[in-house]
């Protein structure tokens, strides 16, 4: 390549006016083994540009974690939904009304109610017997009062004996 042309290109290059093609020409020229001595200074520049261009990003791109994370999130959501459904199945249908009961169940229910009523009436009888007990307690109290009167009588008697 003509040296004259390279010099002109270099001037344009330094003014930022070269096109990409022209810059490529310069790079090609300076990647030769031997260049004109007064242009030697430019050589490391262009060689460096060409070298750096080849540098690569070698690390792997970790895209997987993000993906599994969202998957886990949805699995947990599904698990909770299943759990809630199971709980509902297990305990959810206890609140039945009387109309839902079958014949047998109704019978059992009535018998239970009857038994409870019987129990309640027995309790009432028991309470009546307790009334008799109260009556006895009041009589006992009266007796105690009489004993107290007796005490008062004996006190008076003692006084009379002392005076004699």
């Amino acid at each position: 390549m003509v040296l004259d042309k390279i010099e002109k290109l270099l001037e344009k290059y330094e003014n930022g006016e070269t096109t990409l093609q022209e810059e490529q020409q310069l790079k090609n020229y300076f990647s030769q083994e031997v260049v004109a001595p007064h242009l030697e200074v430019y050589k490391p520049m262009f060689v460096y540009f060409l070298q750096t261009q080849k540098e690569q990003f070698t690390k792997t791109i970790p895209l997987q974690p993000k993906k599994t994370y969202t998957l886990y999130k949805w699995i947990s959501v599904a698990a909770i939904a299943v759990l809630m459904f199971a709980v509902y199945i297990q305990f959810g249908d206890q609140a039945k009304s009387m109309d839902d009961l079958s014949q047998d169940e109704l019978l059992a229910y009535n018998q239970t109610v009857e038994a409870f009523n019987l129990l309640a009436s027995m309790f009432n009888k028991g309470t009546e017997s307790m009334d008799a007990l109260t009556l006895m307690t009041t009589s006992l109290e009266k007796g105690t009062e009489n004993v107290a009167l007796l005490g008062a009588f004996s006190n008076t008697q003692n006084k009379i004996f002392k005076n004699q």
Binding site: Y13, E14, N15, G16, E17, E40, V41, Y42, P44, M45
Partner: peptide
């Protein structure tokens, strides 16, 4: 951009000349 580029290239060449 052209102005910046031109400045950068000139600085590069000047400093290289010095080291050279």
């Amino acid at each position: 951009i052209r102005v910046s580029l031109s400045r950068a290239r000139k600085t590069l060449r000047e400093k290289l000349t010095k080291t050279h």
